[in-house]
Design a protein around this nucleic acid. Sequence first.
DNA 1: TATTGTTATACTCTATAACTATA
DNA 2: TATAGTTATAGAGTATAACAATA
Lengths: 149, 149
Amino acid sequence: MTLDVMMESPLVGDVAGNLRVLVGRLLRALQAQDPEDGLSMSKVSVLSRLADDGPASASTLASAERVRPQSMSATLAALEAEGLVARRPHPTDRRQILIELTEQGWQTARSARRSREDWLTRVLESEYDQEELRLLSRAIELLERLAER
Amino acid sequence: MTLDVMMESPLVGDVAGNLRVLVGRLLRALQAQDPEDGLSMSKVSVLSRLADDGPASASTLASAERVRPQSMSATLAALEAEGLVARRPHPTDRRQILIELTEQGWQTARSARRSREDWLTRVLESEYDQEELRLLSRAIELLERLAER
DNA sequence: TATTGTTATACTCTATAACTATA
DNA sequence: TATAGTTATAGAGTATAACAATA
């Protein structure tokens, strides 16, 4: 125990290397399954954030999602074309445009995040017991902190 | 406790929804930082697998990494051009070409998985204590099972 | 016929560069 | 000048389609 702290434990190096590889593989595993709603992860991520945090400007979304404003601009144009988000002027700053979920956007955000029937849910249910799911749930909280850095 | 098991616990639905969004965000966080060795996650993933499992054919790698054979073909061509993998004929099946790590490929695979200097390692070190790192390490094992599905 | 692998081509996501409008 | 947003263009990764060689 004390030893772990005293010596430079290899744990952090392992976690880093394995996590990097894991994220790529999980991405492809999730993309391979999951045609379901026809939405890319980038789009779901933006919808999800708008649902959590409320309306936001394009540049706020861009930095939160760690993409360039130009990239977010493209994503938002696509979401708008699909009727999932709408734009309204910022009350005081006329440069900004606030992005908000449409009613359909709300429904999509909800169903994308909580669809209990999709592949991932079924796999989690069959692959892990309750204790492992609780561990995963805690790990996800920890990793969300990481994703914000 | 018993209640968790008896009622359809919302835990699995939460994990599923949050995990999907998390993976996308982690991907971009990792890609934003981490130019370091100049290798994409896809490439590191292939090198990593070759290091773990030994030489393999292109089609084996493709299904293991969940990409189409055509996509793996492109990835392998790039890795070969960088001198990290080499090809040798399959001993019995002349259709197949076995892919193996070169000496430089071995070094790169090792350092990519255990690099103690990169952004991710530093963030992990500063952001998490030893207990949290152990939890992450266990979670990564669990999620690797998921990535293979 | 089925399998392994490649080349040709296109799509998605994200990047950089250059621009307009507003603060 | 600095900030918010857009359009134009390019690169990486992966997909589908069509093909050649071998089983």
